[in-house]
Design a binder for these strands. Sequence first.
DNA 1: AATGCGGGGGT
DNA 2: ACCCCAGCATT
Length: 211
Amino acid sequence: MLSEVERRFRTNLLEWGQKNRREYPWRELNRTLYEVFVAEFFLTQTPAGNVAAVYPGFLKQFPTLDVIAEATEDELVEVVEPLGFQNMRAAALKQIASTHDHLPTEPASLMALPRVGQYVANATLCFARGDRLPVLDRNVERVYRRVFRDRWPETEADQLTFTQRLVPDEARAYNLALLDFGALVCQSEPLCKQCFANEYCAYFIESESYG
DNA sequence: AATGCGGGGGT
DNA sequence: ACCCCAGCATT
């Protein structure tokens, strides 16, 4: 059961996303699970522009997991270096490729891979396959905390449950819009004047009442 | 749930 | 040099 505000937010966000979605190579249609995974794996703690710079070259040199399995860790480090965290990332990718022919499609199985947590697992499956999973990073958390304030739970498990209810069948469009909205509008310094939610967002209403 | 970690980015 | 930080790992 969604509240009135929850339904409005979801609808408004989807509409906003249609016009404001950012284009990235890893968001192109028909990307494989592996291709989306590589992007999300790189995007943690790394600006999208940096990832965009190395992404095509990486996929060209390492088009599949078994190519990674055949490569040396140094070769991986070399390509991934501009992103930072190159040693950790190369080691994790090498370990994943040496134990898997293909990536699992269950969130828990993905999370069992080294350096793969809740965010990367859910984002990968949602964006590659449209799975109806909650995608929750710090930006998204900030958005929800502002809009829903009191109803936004404290513990991570409850936050995932809360978010899960809001994700519609168009999960991919919704979660992509959510990430872009957090990056473009509901930033640390939010642009409330241009925000579609400023009639019901708890944060904006409070800021208004304090003038 | 709390803490630690490796390391990028900004000041 | 310093502090802040996101996401994952570990306890």
